[in-house]
């Protein structure tokens, strides 16, 4: 089954990209409206799905990326080392708190976990999964932390909304109360939610 010229162009763009490409960027690259590009992306995804290809089109971190299929992971891993070591339990707990309560101070994280979390937080910041997102208006003006786009990529999520909607978690977790304005990314590559993939 062949694909149309736009889908083929998008396939070429996604083939060379090392990171998820947002819809507006793809639209600008091929010079077509986003709706038309999305239609072509659906066509491309169906083509890869039906043709028994080793790769698939994934919507991830506010963009689109060609990723290998999970069933070929062992073969690919023999050639390409895993991206990074899995996070420790402490780091994952800290990441979960930041993801669902962002922006959040370290004191809040430690209050919820009951242990010092400086090391876990430093690990997350070092790996680019969490970043400083301003300061709280509380005494001492402590740093606020929020997840980054890299977090979405790391967990294979399209957006934070997807995380909240998919998770069958207690309200204490999903009750996200972000501070006003924290989500406003100033640049395309920055911010936890620079683009909303669902058109």
């Amino acid at each position: 089954m062949g694909i149309g010229p736009v889908a083929a162009q998008l396939e070429a763009l996604l083939f060379v990209a090392a990171e998820p490409l947002p819809l507006p960027r793809l639209s600008a690259a091929v010079g077509l409206p986003e709706r038309q590009v999305r239609t072509a992306l659906v066509e491309l995804a169906a083509h890869l799905e039906a043709g028994g290809h080793g790769i698939a089109l994934s919507e991830i971190a506010g963009g689109f990326q060609l990723l290998t299929r999970p069933e070929h992971a062992a073969v690919v891993a023999a050639l390409q080392a895993p991206r990074s070591a899995p996070l420790s339990k402490a780091a994952l707990e800290t990441l979960a708190i930041v993801a669902f309560r962002q922006p959040v101070t370290r004191a809040t994280i430690e209050e919820l976990r009951g242990v010092q979390s400086e090391g876990a937080l430093a690990t997350l910041v070092d790996r680019g999964l969490v970043a400083e997102a301003g300061r709280a208006d509380s005494p001492g003006r402590p740093f606020l932390y929020a997840t980054t786009r890299q977090f979405l990529e790391h967990c294979g999520l399209r957006s934070l909304e997807e995380l909240a909607s998919l998770a069958n978690l207690p309200p204490a977790v999903t009750q996200v109360q972000p501070l006003p304005g924290w989500r406003t990314p100033a640049r395309g590559a920055a911010g936890p939610e620079a683009a909303t993939p669902d058109a």
Binding site: L66, L67, P70, A77, R83, L95, C155, G156, L157
Partner: peptide, 17 residues
């Protein structure tokens, strides 16, 4: 929530870009 993130992390680790 952390366990959920772990499952996402593991699933994502199986897909290479």
């Amino acid at each position: 929530a952390a366990a959920l993130l772990r499952s996402y992390e593991e699933s994502r680790a199986l897909r290479f870009g």
